[in-house]
Amino acid sequence: MKMSPAGETRIWTTLDFDRDGKQHDWLRLPFSTDQSAYGVIPIPITCIRNGVGPTALLIAGNHGDEYEGQVALGKLARRLEPLDMRGRILILPALNYPAVVAGTPLPRRRRQSQSPVPGRGEWHSNPDDRPLCHLGSAFDG
């Protein structure tokens, strides 16, 4: 199985972003805890590709308690087929997976992030959120 780096980041996946078809997998963000030095934060991803064309990145779940986008992108990932489109669509229905699982805006946080993408602003200064900083840098254009 080929391991594809997701840009210049520690996040990795086995997805082949250049392969035509529909693939479901996880982005894996390495994260050590007291329970395991080899843990990861899983981030679900669907890659749908049909030939050459533009790439669209669809994200929901930045805040774990905002369910509408998560539900909509989950349905889209299941229903959209490669023959329905041209190009590539990357769907991340639960970008901040720990917050999505907890059903809270942000894991271990009391303050609201002012940034639409984790890894910006105050996220960099909080030691508890250091692994989540990699999410923002992975998707920084």
Results as ranks from 00 to 15, higher is better:
T14R: 14
L15K: 01
L15W: 05
D16N: 14
F17Y: 09
F17K: 00
D20N: 13
G21Q: 04
K22H: 05
H24Q: 09
D25G: 08
W26E: 07
R28N: 14
L29D: 08
P30M: 04
P30Q: 07
F31A: 13
T33L: 07
T33F: 12
Q35S: 12
S36V: 10
S36C: 12
A37C: 03
Y38G: 11
V40H: 06
V40D: 07
I41R: 03
P44Y: 08
I45F: 09
I45L: 10
T46K: 01
I48Y: 00
R49W: 12
R49K: 14
R49S: 05
G51A: 04
G51P: 04
V52M: 08
G53S: 00
G53H: 06
T55H: 07
A56H: 09
A56Q: 12
L57A: 07
L58V: 09
L58H: 00
I59T: 04
N62P: 06
H63Q: 14
H63L: 02
D65P: 08
D65N: 15
D65F: 14
Y67L: 15
E68L: 03
E68N: 10
Q70G: 06
Q70V: 13
Q70L: 07
V71W: 09
A72T: 05
A72C: 06
L73W: 07
G74S: 14
L76N: 06
R78C: 02
R78G: 11
R79W: 07
E81H: 13
P82H: 04
P82L: 06
P82N: 11
D84R: 12
R86S: 15
G87R: 01
R88L: 01
I89L: 11
L90P: 11
I91G: 00
P93M: 03
P93F: 08
P93I: 03
A94K: 12
A94M: 15
L95P: 01
A99L: 06
A99R: 06
V100H: 03
V100P: 01
V101Y: 00
G103T: 05
G103W: 02
T104H: 04
P105W: 05
P105E: 10
P105Y: 01
L106M: 13
P107V: 08
P107R: 08
R108S: 14
R108E: 13
R108C: 11
R109M: 15
R110K: 14
R111N: 07
R111G: 09
Q112A: 12
S113N: 11
Q114I: 04
P116S: 11
V117K: 09
V117I: 15
G119E: 02
E122F: 07
E122A: 11
S125V: 13
N126F: 07
N126E: 14
P127D: 04
D128L: 15
R130K: 14
P131L: 03
L132P: 08
L132A: 04
H134C: 10
H134D: 15
L135M: 14
L135G: 03
S137R: 13
A138I: 11
F139I: 09
F139Q: 00
